[in-house]
């Protein structure tokens, strides 16, 4: 059996890491908003602060996202 690798999401990623959006769920209303703000597949984000909510830098804009919302954003580490 293959070992289960936990998915890396915006909420589990480390602070200061440069990330790339892998996947954002298509059918959820919350994600529709995220998508319009620029969270698309393969876009680069940087997580700046972590706490009750997450602050990340996306295309030059700082966005604050609630943790539950961050769970919807699957990311991968991105080496520049």
């Amino acid at each position: 059996m293959l070992p289960v690798v936990p998915k890396l999401t915006l909420s589990t990623a480390k602070c200061g890491e440069k990330l790339r959006v892998r996947h954002i769920c298509p059918n959820c209303p919350h994600c529709a908003r995220l998508r319009e703000l620029g969270f698309r597949d393969h876009v680069v984000v940087k997580k700046i602060a972590d706490g009750a909510a997450v602050i990340c830098l996306l295309m030059g804009t700082r966005l604050a996202l609630g943790r539950e919302l961050c769970d919807h954003v699957e990311v991968e580490r991105f080496a520049a």
């Binding site: 966005l63 604050a64 919302l69």
Partner: peptide, 8 residues
């Protein structure tokens, strides 16, 4: 859920 822009 929180989603907020933090302007510079």
């Amino acid at each position: 859920m929180l989603l907020l822009e933090l302007p510079p």
